[in-house]
Amino acid sequence: METEFYESYEGLRSALDASGVVGVWDWDIVRRTARYDRGAAFLLALDPGLAGQSLHGDTAMVGIHPEDREWLKTGYQRALHGGGLFLSEYRVILPSMGTRWLLSRGRIYQDELGRPVRCKGILIDITDTREDSRGYLARTEARSEHPLDRAATLLLDARKAIDEVGGEGQSHLRVVLDLALFEVGAHLARRARH
């Protein structure tokens, strides 16, 4: 039984790696810090060893393409004040892999006074699907939330719950959820481009 689980998990992990889901991020807006899993730390901070650590300022964004940093910062600042869901596509430069395109899908959470306090989301490598060289950041209105936006939010919540449970089988469940997040993210990216 354990061998079957391992083989199944390895197959899912391979599929997930091949599909492009690369990371999860969590920004504490109040403290101005970011926390990444290993994949996001590798892409955004250029060091997977920084996973789980509180990163500040440019340390958290050193991997982002220099031409994309300013418009991305400006776009995020505008999105923060509106709250809700957002999508962005931008480039990172990796010493070992060159320029890669990422889709970042996240949700901005606000306190009871409407101030942004936290932002969580996923990163997907979409380099192979890119046809042009322009990035974007789009915010969606909560009232007109598309079913795929709700699905992504629920999958992110499920991933967090699985992380809290821990124990045997957690890795397998995370891979399944990450694979589902990739598929939903890919559909959201196609929808945002049209």
Results as ranks from 00 to 15, higher is better:
38 R>L: 07
79 A>C: 08
95 P>N: 11
165 V>T: 06
6 Y>P: 01
135 G>A: 09
77 Q>T: 06
97 M>C: 14
139 R>Y: 05
131 E>Y: 06
167 G>W: 10
64 I>K: 01
81 H>L: 12
72 L>F: 09
178 D>H: 09
90 Y>N: 01
23 G>Y: 12
52 G>Q: 08
10 E>V: 06
60 A>D: 02
159 R>H: 12
161 A>K: 01
92 V>I: 12
93 I>Y: 02
171 S>W: 06
144 S>E: 14
45 A>V: 12
90 Y>Q: 03
141 E>L: 08
177 L>Y: 05
182 F>D: 04
148 L>Y: 05
37 D>P: 00
72 L>E: 01
85 L>Y: 15
73 K>Y: 07
150 R>Y: 14
36 Y>P: 05
56 H>I: 07
41 A>M: 04
112 E>F: 12
22 V>I: 10
187 H>N: 11
123 L>C: 06
8 S>G: 10
177 L>D: 05
89 E>T: 15
171 S>V: 04
18 A>N: 06
7 E>V: 03
93 I>V: 14
151 A>N: 13
16 L>N: 01
133 S>D: 14
142 A>M: 15
135 G>D: 13
21 V>N: 07
10 E>K: 12
42 F>E: 01
87 L>W: 05
30 V>H: 00
69 R>V: 14
23 G>F: 06
87 L>V: 11
133 S>N: 07
91 R>F: 13
21 V>A: 10
161 A>F: 13
84 G>V: 05
128 D>L: 08
20 G>K: 02
74 T>G: 01
105 R>G: 09
5 F>I: 14
15 A>D: 01
46 L>R: 15
158 A>T: 01
47 D>I: 11
146 H>G: 07
142 A>D: 10
127 T>P: 04
68 D>S: 04
182 F>Y: 14
49 G>C: 08
192 A>P: 03
107 R>S: 03
56 H>F: 03
69 R>K: 07
99 T>H: 00
101 W>V: 01
108 I>M: 07
45 A>P: 03
40 A>Y: 05
26 D>K: 05
43 L>V: 12
74 T>Y: 02
